[in-house]
Design a protein around this nucleic acid. Structure first.
Lengths: 212, 212
DNA sequence: AAACAATACGAACGATCGTCCATAATTATT
DNA sequence: AATAATTATGGACGATCGTTCGTATTGTTT
């Protein structure tokens, strides 16, 4: 476990040089991974894209596996910025669930990633390959489902959502809509309208809403 | 376009030798692709698994791309056998939609493919790489959605499904449930119960059922 | 049995990959 | 200004990939 790799260093509040280049690399790596896949992402290709030496990229992360984990972590950050943070401004419960759906759809719609949501494709890609990258993906996804379930529970507590509702079941259904929207838009292109996803999300919520 | 590759030959009703070995190869290739992905599937690995020369595998298909297309086609055949054909014994409309859902879930549950549904993962994997393989996947998926939409339309015509229902919207929602079930089972393993998928499928249908 | 086509084989190719290492360049510390 | 630590570089490595080619081997047809 004794690694020569240095990792990120914070020097008196300023970021060290290595950390900055790592950030630039991982930002580009996320875009590449969204198209090529997390496994198809290659250090050589990334180096060429950023205009640096292949060995420099490797040195920045230590291994390809670590690069993949960094990509997952950065994707999570982006998702929090673009989808979760805006929704957190709304009231917990049903309202926030609606906001999360709208945030997700508009995030997909503006094509933040050229090749669609990195996590969606990566989770299906890595499901047969145990390792740190897979674990990182599973953890982020568990986090996301927990966020949904929490707000479902809050909605039930507030009386917005039917008492008998199973949070895990409803979270599953909501997540399914979002994943399918990402999937169909990637596969069928402009033939698919994100309004189908919005309607789907709304219908699932409506089914469990308490009559007002 | 003049290829030395011979392709499948049918000789007086019996399959030629090449066709049989191709079948054995593609059957194993589907299993491999379900774990390694359609792009991660390698001719070398497949040859080693089947115990033959790498060049023989290549000669049987002509190119890796053709092998991928063959894998997609064979997966489609399996899906028709295990999911669609049983459902076709039931009445068109709502009943058949239920049967398709149950067929899909039990097909996932018995883990026909080690790495989960090949088409689900492959469609998200190839969405950034144009080519025959991607086209083949999109065609099969379009076929599947059309089957759902057809039965939704039949259900509406029979008065089983609410008149205002949009077939494409409902097909989207049903397909989302199936994809998410495959996805969660692969990512979370035994933590996930396929009954969640069954319940999700039933709830979506229930929402559009006409009051009896 | 002879001739032919189809199929399988082994070896080799160019390309790409992740990784390692010695060294140069850059930045921080004394 | 000198020294030390960090970061970037280019070259080389072994491995794996898809593909090609000449040649056995097998099966079919005359």
């Amino acid at each position: 476990m004794t690694s020569k790799h240095t990792g990120a260093q914070i020097v008196d509040g300023r970021r060290a040089r290595g950390a900055r280049t790592r950030e630039a690399l991982v930002a580009e790596a996320v875009q590449l991974a969204s198209v090529e896949g997390l496994e198809g992402l290659s250090i050589a290709h990334l180096a060429a894209r950023i205009g640096t030496a292949k060995s420099s990229v490797h040195a920045s992360f230590g291994s390809k596996e670590a690069l993949q984990v960094a990509v997952v972590a950065h994707t999570r950050d982006i998702l929090i910025d673009l989808v979760i943070a805006p929704a957190l401004k709304t009231e917990p419960g049903l309202q926030r669930l609606s906001a999360l759906g709208e945030g997700w759809m508009s995030y997909l719609e503006r094509k933040t990633f050229e090749g669609g949501c990195v996590l969606s494709s990566a989770s299906l890609e890595m499901d047969g390959r145990p390792g740190p990258a897979r674990d990182a993906i599973a953890a982020v996804m568990r986090e996301w489902l927990d966020l949904l379930e929490d707000n479902i529970a809050r909605g039930i507590a507030k009386g917005e959502i039917t008492a008998g509702t199973d949070p895990a079941q409803l979270a599953f259904a909501l997540n399914a809509v979002g994943m399918a929207a990402n999937w169909q838009s990637q596969l069928f292109g402009e033939t698919f309208s994100y309004d189908t996803g919005r309607t789907g999300w709304a219908q699932v919520l409506a089914q469990h809403k308490t009559p007002s």
